[in-house]
């Protein structure tokens, strides 16, 4: 096999090069002490210590949910949580990432519910209705979502409320890992958001009409015309485009030239 070490010089990029005189702090990665410069995120601190991520690292921007992390400060009984790519490493942090959590996710057919969306939720996730209301999920969520509240909304049948409240979820799984009622909140919420998007949020009528127009082949003809044009002529059309005003209400504004709509 090719030597893995050889490719190491190919990229540099995100490597942390601490400024001279940077203050070093002690952190404990899975219990082992490392000295790292202060102000780094946990993720960059772990890399600075010499770890190469395979699991537990994704977008590095707080949206993919790969790097859910639990930590404690030495001498403090409280267990805390955050995303490794978004949480700043601080002195005496004892860190453990949760790169995977086994989630309960029953399959379903979005186009063929056995009952109402709420009944379907009850069928798929009966454990949601056994929430004990302890609030650990809410305290654990690194996105500051009130998880317990959206679970309460689900129980009540307010799927719109639950969909909106859970919208910021990055599906890291930290909530489910701490739930004494063994609920997989983030998967139930995913189901509820899709059920809401499909059955409760009103459909876009203008989109339906436009889809029919596209399927009729109407625009292919217009586009064929553009493709056949000389570049100078296309440039002229581009420069002369009429710009829709920024504050125009959707669906109300119409351009002067309507031939190519």
């Amino acid at each position: 096999m090719a030597d893995d070490k050889k490719h190491k010089t190919l990229t540099t990029g995100d490597r942390t090069i601490p400024p001279e005189g940077a203050k070093m702090i002690a952190i404990y990665i899975m219990g082992r002490e490392y000295m790292v410069p202060e102000t780094l995120t946990i993720m960059k601190a772990v890399e600075y210590a010499g770890y190469s991520y395979v699991r537990g690292c994704g977008c590095r921007g707080g949206i993919c949910g790969a790097c859910g992390t639990f930590y404690r400060y030495i001498g403090d009984y409280r267990l805390r949580s955050g995303l490794a790519c978004q949480t700043v490493a601080e002195p005496n942090m004892v860190i453990m990432q949760l790169p995977f959590f086994p989630a309960n996710r029953p399959g379903y057919d979005l186009d063929d519910f056995t009952g109402s969306p709420h009944e379907e939720l009850r069928r798929l996730y009966p454990e949601v209705f056994k929430c004990v209301g302890c609030g650990t999920c809410t305290r654990t969520c690194p996105m500051d979502i009130d998880v317990m509240d959206y679970i309460a909304l689900m129980k009540r049948g307010d799927l719109k409320g639950a969909a909106l409240k859970s919208f910021d979820c990055v599906m890291c799984g930290l909530c489910a890992s701490r739930c004494p009622a063994q609920i997989t909140q983030f998967m139930a919420a995913q189901f509820v958001r899709r059920a809401y998007g499909k059955y409760i949020l009103p459909k876009a009528g203008h989109l339906e009409k436009r889809v029919e127009e596209v399927k009729s082949g109407k625009y292919e003809k217009l586009l064929d015309g553009l493709m056949a044009m000389k570049q100078e002529d296309v440039k002229k059309l581009y420069v002369e485009r009429e710009r829709e005003p920024d504050l125009a209400e959707p669906g109300k504004w119409m351009p002067k030239e309507t031939n190519n709509l």
Partner: peptide, 26 residues
């Protein structure tokens, strides 16, 4: 550009939560 409306429609049908006005307009 031709397929774009079809894609938005496909996503709507899959239950994506688009930002919409109260009447459903995107």
């Amino acid at each position: 550009t031709n397929d774009a409306p079809l894609i938005i429609h496909w996503l709507e049908g899959l239950g994506m939560m688009f930002d919409k006005l109260p009447d459903g307009r995107m």
